Simulated assay, not measured.
Amino acid sequence: MSELVARTGRHQQRYESGCRLIAGCIPYRFRCSEDSNGNKSEKIVEVLMINSTSGPGLLFPKGGWENDETVEEAAAREALEEAGVRGDIMHFLGHYESSPGGRCRAAMFALLVKEELSSWPEQSRRVRSWVTVPEAIQCCRHLWMREALENGFMKWRDGGMVPTRGCK
């Protein structure tokens, strides 16, 4: 059982023009691939996704942005509570409307994972999966999260974030 406790309730959450403000992140790490001879050849980016508690498909950690924290703190907290990871916020990926009616506005960030906890607040309800970016695009439950991955994360990544060589 985790000693950390997830925040609950919506009494401290932020709203703007009737829209609930949420924060989330795309947790990522580098993994070295191996060629047919077992030699490490290139670095591959993997993203961490979690199961949805309300239906099929995977998603990125996200949740309400509360009055006593910055949006970056909220995104990092959600990654810890829902996925059991800690890391460094590396880049703001943009704002995304989480539903066609705009009930939620999500600020999404790239989070470089530094630590993967063996115990975390929502571990009894969440399963985490490290997947490649193409796999994430295929299994992502929400269109707006897929857009954050394709239009935010991938553009930032392709701008120089990912070293493709240099595995030792």
Score class of each variant (00 low, 15 high):
residue 52 S to E: 10
residue 111 L to M: 06
residue 104 C to G: 09
residue 84 G to A: 10
residue 80 L to W: 12
residue 63 G to F: 01
residue 80 L to G: 04
residue 76 A to D: 06
residue 108 M to G: 08
residue 113 V to D: 04
residue 87 G to I: 03
residue 50 I to P: 01
residue 74 A to G: 10
residue 50 I to M: 15
residue 108 M to K: 09
residue 101 G to Y: 07
residue 100 P to S: 11
residue 109 F to Y: 07
residue 52 S to Y: 08
residue 83 A to H: 02
residue 101 G to H: 11
residue 54 S to P: 06
residue 95 H to E: 15
residue 83 A to S: 05
residue 100 P to W: 07
residue 103 R to G: 13
residue 110 A to S: 08
residue 101 G to R: 08
residue 114 K to P: 04
residue 69 E to G: 07
residue 75 A to H: 00
residue 62 K to Q: 07
residue 103 R to M: 13
residue 78 E to H: 11
residue 46 E to K: 14
residue 85 V to T: 00
residue 65 W to G: 03
residue 47 V to C: 00
residue 44 I to M: 13
residue 63 G to K: 00
residue 98 S to K: 11
residue 113 V to A: 10
residue 105 R to T: 01
residue 100 P to A: 09
residue 61 P to L: 06
residue 44 I to R: 14
residue 68 D to E: 13
residue 81 E to C: 09
residue 91 H to W: 14
residue 89 I to T: 00
residue 101 G to V: 10
residue 75 A to C: 06
residue 110 A to M: 02
residue 95 H to S: 12
residue 113 V to C: 07
residue 94 G to N: 12
residue 46 E to P: 11
residue 55 G to W: 09
residue 51 N to A: 14
residue 99 S to W: 12
residue 114 K to T: 14
residue 87 G to E: 07
residue 49 M to C: 15
residue 115 E to M: 10
residue 76 A to I: 00
residue 114 K to D: 15
residue 107 A to M: 04
residue 50 I to G: 06
residue 50 I to E: 08
residue 81 E to M: 09
